[in-house]
């Protein structure tokens, strides 16, 4: 097990390095094809060549390789890796360090993810479990129809409908009934407020969690069904254990493995969903920052934030793999 973890950690570092290199190659190609992002610093104004040169030097875009199509720009990449090692993830076009931006934005994203994860587990385990236990009955079909409906509603449609149709009348009603600073009024507030971070994040978080929960419901159902058909469950039943004991100890535990790995895969999807959610609901989180940076062509912020998010994802996947191996000894092939 110790050797396995060491190997996975080393692989994780390699993956992270490759991700950074891939991102570097793609952005380099984009700069080479698309023109200089330093121009974005000046907006619509036309800078003098010396001003442009000064900005290019400041953001490390002065290397001539950015003008040569097909040049992989190894030099700036090595420089950037050195900066990352010192905790310097670049600065935004307004001169604010990316690490500073991230440290104020990350707590809101973490809050969002807490709500999302709770929603997933609550909806997925409950509905998936019920559907598996009552396979073929009306509740199974109902839950299945529900999960298909959830699948057919992309997160942005959910948010769109919520924001335009439900949020405004609901928050007006809550304000009139309970007062403008009461909890219900904050819950249905159509935009984020930093003073009441938790309250204004709950509904977007639940919607984001709901959008990803269909996969969870199906997965839990399929995993539990497979276990219900397994020999050891038949044995447990035939030796007279109660149905409750069988499902809790023999089914739910054994079907937890694919569910745990799914968390890793769904995590990246939730990260993407967080960008949409934070962008549409004006939440000041990592996704919201990224979305604004993309709009403003703030390349150094985009690369910095995406690199950090990639690092987080690598860690999450690593943890998932180790948990997977700990739960199922068959996974450690070699």
């Amino acid at each position: 097990m110790g050797r396995y973890i060491t190997r996975r950690v080393l692989q994780g570092f390699l993956t992270l390095f490759l991700v950074m290199f891939l991102l570097h190659l793609l952005t380099t190609l984009a700069i080479q094809l698309n023109g200089n992002p330093a121009q974005a610093f000046f907006g619509d104004r036309t800078p003098s060549p010396s001003q442009l040169a000064a900005v290019e030097t400041r953001y490390g875009l002065d290397d001539p390789c950015y003008d040569q199509l097909g040049n992989p720009c190894i030099g700036p990449f090595v420089e950037r890796l050195g900066d990352y090692a010192q905790g310097d993830f670049g600065e935004s076009l307004r001169g604010r360090p990316v690490t500073d931006i991230v440290s104020t934005a990350a707590p809101n994203t973490l809050r969002l993810f807490v709500v999302v994860t709770i929603t997933w587990l609550a909806i997925g385990m409950t509905l998936g479990g019920i559907a598996a236990r009552r396979r073929g009955k009306a509740s199974d079909h109902g839950i299945r129809g529900l999960s298909i409906l959830i699948d057919a509603l992309p997160i942005f449609v959910l948010l769109l409908v919520y924001k335009y149709i439900f949020s405004v009348p609901l928050s007006r009603w809550a304000k009139d009934t309970f007062g403008s600073d009461s909890l219900p009024a904050l819950l249905f507030k159509p935009s984020f407020s930093p003073q009441h971070a938790w309250a204004t994040l709950i509904v977007p978080g639940i919607l984001l969690g709901l959008a990803g929960s269909a996969a969870f419901i199906r997965l839990v159902r399929a995993a539990q069904l497979e276990t219900y058909n397994a020999d050891h469950v038949r044995t447990a039943r035939s030796k007279g254990l109660s149905e409750r004991h069988v499902s809790r100890h023999h089914v739910v535990r054994n079907s937890a493995i694919p569910v745990v790995t799914a968390v890793g895969i769904v995590f990246t999807e939730a990260l993407a969903g967080a960008v949409i959610t934070e962008g549409m609901m004006n939440i000041y989180g990592m996704g919201g920052v990224l979305w604004k940076a993309v709009q403003d062509s703030d390349v150094s912020v985009v690369i910095g934030v995406v690199t950090l998010l990639a690092a987080v994802t690598v860690v999450v996947m690593l943890v998932v793999d180790v948990v997977y191996a700990a739960l199922d000894p068959r996974i450690r092939y070699e």
């Binding site: 692989q11 993956t15 891939l22 999807e269 960008v275 949409i276 994802t313 996947m317």
Partner: peptide, 10 residues
């Protein structure tokens, strides 16, 4: 793994 780390939408 490298491609999985970067979410599709991002």
């Amino acid at each position: 793994e490298v491609f999985l780390v970067i979410p599709l939408l991002l």
